[in-house]
Nucleic acid binder design. Sequence first.
DNA 1: TTATTATTTAAACGATTATAGAAATATTTA
DNA 2: TAAATATTTCTATAATCGTTTAAATAATAA
Lengths: 104, 104
Amino acid sequence: MKIEKLVKAFAALSQKTRVQILSMIINFGDDGICPCNLLENLKLTNANLSFHLKELENAGFINKKKKGRFIHYFVNCDLIEQLGNFLIKDCGKLNCKKKETKNA
Amino acid sequence: MKIEKLVKAFAALSQKTRVQILSMIINFGDDGICPCNLLENLKLTNANLSFHLKELENAGFINKKKKGRFIHYFVNCDLIEQLGNFLIKDCGKLNCKKKETKNA
DNA sequence: TTATTATTTAAACGATTATAGAAATATTTA
DNA sequence: TAAATATTTCTATAATCGTTTAAATAATAA
């Protein structure tokens, strides 16, 4: 995975509210969940929730799909697994040594 | 792991320069590496490197130890593994459901 | 149609972060 | 001791981020 994508993903998880939102979305699995339902359980404004959902979406953690009257958000498990694997297996093997970083 | 610690760790990885620095430190393994050596391979000021090292240290990713004339930084593998495991196994099992988040 | 609900966007703000330059603090070497 | 090197701290600045309020857009229900 490119370092830019990694960093963007970590940035999306660098905020308590977003980790909680992502966790909730994961918990609703394949059904997904709409913002209005998330709102019931979070002390946020609708605008603020929308902001955080967009951040998570931009980072690739979630996708949305229309479901009748509502928009449902779903988790993208692949990205989460890739991140986990990066940390456990690949971290430390990035191209960050001498020559490569000289002009990074 | 407490969500505050998680978030702090992810925040430390939410910046390209810091991921590169951490990766370099990991690559030097048990020998560790001093800031002056890191500087040779990064386009940073000493002040800025010091800032990023402190951020990584505060998040728990690295520790330092005096080695003769230099200070050597070492990676804390435990935290990295914990983060990886959180993503792969525990993410989605946080206490973020209905009742629990009501007063979070 | 109007009213209601769901969701996003826009504008403004305060707080935090990344960076640089300069100075301060060690430490080592000569 | 003075000079050189290593590292951190201080100060300031520009950029980014999280939040709110208000408005805009879209869809549904009455």
